[in-house]
Amino acid sequence: MKETLAKDPYNIVITGVGGQGNVMASRVLSNMLVRKGFKVTIGETFGMSQRGGSVMSHIRVSSESVWSPQIPKGGADLIVAIEPIEGIRVLAGYGNRSVKVVVNLRPIYPVGVITGEEEYPSEETIRAKVTALAAEARFLAATEEAIRLGNPILGNIIMIGAVAGLGVLPIDRDLFESVIRDGMPAARVEVNLRAFAIGEAFVFSVKEEKQ
C-alpha cells in the first residue's frame, strides 16, 4: 500500500448508469482518501441520472490543492466502470496509454438496444476494446457476485474493493470500514465489508495475469 500518489493529481473516473450506486461509490472512495489527508475534488454528472442515463464521477486526488471538477480530455489514470459500455465511453473521452481500467461485465441495456434499434457489443468485443485501450484491464462479474450477496447494488462496493486490490491507491479494508461505519446503518456494514472483500480478492487472484 503506497502512501503517496503515483501522480498528482491522480484522476479517477467512476462511471455507470443511474441506479447502480455510482455516486455512493465515488463518495465512499473519496472519503477514504480525505481521511488519508488528501485533497479530493469530485465532479459529478448525475442530472437526471435516476432515469437510466449515464452517470460519471470525476475524482481528482491531490496532496496539495483543489482541482477542476472536470478531468481534462485524455487525462484519466484509473477508470472504474460499473457498466461495461459506459467504461468504453469514458475511455473514448479520457483514456490514454497508461490508464488502468476495472470493468463490471454486467450490461444495462439502453432503450435503443431493448427496442432492437441498436446493438449491444458482445462481451468479447468489450474485453478486446478495453484491453486495447488500457495499460491494465480487469474484468469482474460484480453484479452477479452482488446478487449472490442479496442485492445487485452492492456491485458498486465490489468495484471499490477491486480498486483497493489494484494497489494504486493508499486504501484498504480498515479504512473502508471506518468510512462506512460513519455513513450507514450498522446492520448493512457487514454485507458491504463482504462485498469489498470479494472485489479485493478477485483482483489479487488475477494479479499476475497481464491482460
Binding site: 435516476q50 432515469r51 465511453r89 439502453p110 435503443g112 441498436e118 457489443p121
Partner: peptide
C-alpha cells in the same frame, strides 16, 4: 456504442 437515452424508470 449504443446511445443511452433517458427514459422513465
Amino acid at each position: 456504442l449504443p446511445k443511452r437515452d433517458q427514459t422513465f424508470c
